[in-house]
Amino acid sequence: MKKDILICGVGGQGTVLASKIIAASAMDEGYTAHSAETIGMAQRGGPVTSHVRIGGSAYSPLIPIGGADLLIAFEPSEAVRNLKYIKKDGFVVVNRVPVKPTSLGGGADYDGKAEIEFLKSVCDCLVVDSDEMCAPFGSSKFFNVAVLGAASGTGRLGIKAETIQNSIIKIVPDRFKEKNLAAFDAGKKIGEKNAD
């Protein structure tokens, strides 16, 4: 198997954790994995991306433009910002809940709706709502794992759901395990309805 997966969002949304879970799961299934993240100054409220490259002969740490099989976006405008990375026949899993830019950065009217409409018009995508998915456990903190669950449910990660659940158990601190696994399952159910 060869898969290039780009995960994107805003600093603090947990893209690094999501990429670690995917990479660890791929390795558990015997594939080679490489990943690369944005770290440093840009982390503070800026756009962040994680490039995860599974199997095959990935030499570069960064996915080439038009090279990603799957884009997992935690935020609508960040999905648009990184859409250039997706292959023409690639797939997008996007969270519709927007993160407004800082109060003075302009874009006070930004609500993510135009971005979702645009994504739907140009590519194959699954739109999820992190607030709805996470409502049953009273905190939207674990939404990144819920969105990851949705991606897994579509079958497009190319990794078994159980492998990912095991990685969550290994990587996430004990006290958050249960909620993360519940969030993953909530997302997975939605993803399964949209499996290809």
């Binding site: 503070r44 409220g45 800026g46 433009i65 038009g66 960040e78 648009v80 859409l83 990375y85 874009g107």
Partner: peptide, 21 residues
């Protein structure tokens, strides 16, 4: 040949400069 999605009609993503937490 290019293999990426056309972004001609894409809405401009908002600027997100780094800020103090």
């Amino acid at each position: 040949a290019e293999n990426s999605v056309s972004l001609d009609d894409a809405p401009q993503p908002p600027a997100r400069p780094p800020v103090l937490c």
